[in-house]
Amino acid sequence: MIAEFEKKSKLKRVMISPLRYPGGKGSLYSTLKSIVRANNLTAGTYVEPYAGGAGAALALLVTGQVRRIAINDLDPAVYAFWSALVSEPAKFSELVSKAQVTVKEWSRQKEIYLGESSDQMKLGFATFYLNRTNRSGVLNGGPIGGMDQTGNYKIDARFNKSALLERIRVIGLHSPRITVTNIDGLAVIRRYARRSNTLIYADPPYFDKAGSLYLNSFKDADHANLAKCLNGLSETKWVLTYDNVPQVRELYADRRSRLFSLNYSAHRVVKANEIMVYSDALDLGDICARIGATGTPPS
């Protein structure tokens, strides 16, 4: 299966993450791969301070584009999932294999999730279970098909055990090269900022974050503090994505940027424009030629 993922490394998207995220950034795999290669970072570390589904990180690792990844999430439930999966993939796989995908079991897992169990495996699996059985993967949503299961799709529609177990197996093979943390995103950025051979990809909670899985939202001061931090790291290789709002252009007015389209699937499919911002230290290679000197896509 690893060979199959390596073959897919030529594609625009490689699906590795077991989590479903509205607006997940796995679709940026091709762009991030180009950035990694243009900056000679294939033997380095790729860092996501606001990991969520970590789709891009896992795709880059499994296809051999980077040597190590560091994924961080301040949400204790999302962190519990990654911690449990990376530290004990065999045990996590066993839970997936034995899982009953029913409304009754959904209710039990919901109680574990809301109770924020101190048992990382229990909380992590409950987070995973709800993500795979809830509408659009939104953790605070209801089950696919509704509690009465009268919808067009049923609760097990996104719980393909064989496919999920294979993703977990592959992640387990690479787990020694995955670091998982549960701290503030700014602390992660500062921790890795001065390290050579590192690319930081920041995808923080957005200004308009409807449909997001994040329990942690950003206030205006948080957005400003992140901008102050990143703008001050002129020698660090970082990429940032945000929703396309005026505040972002103001906060990163001195940095190169471009718009890109992304499909969101929370409740309904919506195509939205977002902004990608680049640090001055990044060599954009042919990406720079494609977006033009002004940092905006050619018409």
Rank of each mutant, 00 (worst) to 15 (best):
L165P: 04
G124Y: 03
F260H: 12
Y252I: 13
S117Y: 09
L199P: 01
L284G: 03
L240D: 06
Y153L: 07
K219L: 15
T150Y: 02
A51L: 07
P297L: 14
N134P: 08
I275P: 01
A77D: 09
T102N: 13
A227C: 09
G142C: 08
R255C: 15
S17N: 02
V180K: 02
T181W: 01
N40F: 05
I16N: 00
K219E: 15
D222P: 06
P22Q: 04
D283G: 10
S212W: 00
K219A: 11
L251E: 11
A70G: 06
F125K: 05
G295L: 08
I71M: 01
I2S: 06
S30D: 12
R167W: 03
V180T: 03
T236A: 09
V47E: 05
T102C: 07
Y201H: 05
R169L: 12
G64D: 10
Y201P: 04
T179M: 04
T45W: 00
G26Y: 00
V248H: 02
H267M: 13
A253T: 08
A289I: 13
L230W: 07
S9K: 14
R135F: 09
A281Q: 09
T45V: 06
I16H: 01
R20S: 03
K228L: 13
T179D: 13
D254R: 07
I71Q: 01
R290D: 15
G124E: 05
R194F: 12
I200S: 00
L186Y: 03
S118W: 05
R169I: 11
L173V: 09
V14K: 02
A157F: 06
K271N: 15
E274Q: 14
S175L: 15
I183L: 08
R158T: 08
T133S: 07
N140L: 08
A70N: 04
L240T: 03
T42F: 00
R268I: 10
A59S: 12
S83H: 12
R13A: 11
A70L: 04
A3L: 10
Q65I: 13
G185T: 01
Y153R: 07
G24H: 02
I189P: 07
G145L: 06
R169Q: 15
L139G: 05
L282R: 11
W106L: 08
D286K: 15
Q100L: 13
D283I: 11
Q247A: 14
E6F: 10
T31A: 07
V277F: 03
R290W: 03
Q247M: 15
Y129L: 04
I200N: 01
N263W: 00
G55V: 01
L164I: 13
R191S: 09
L240G: 04
G141H: 03
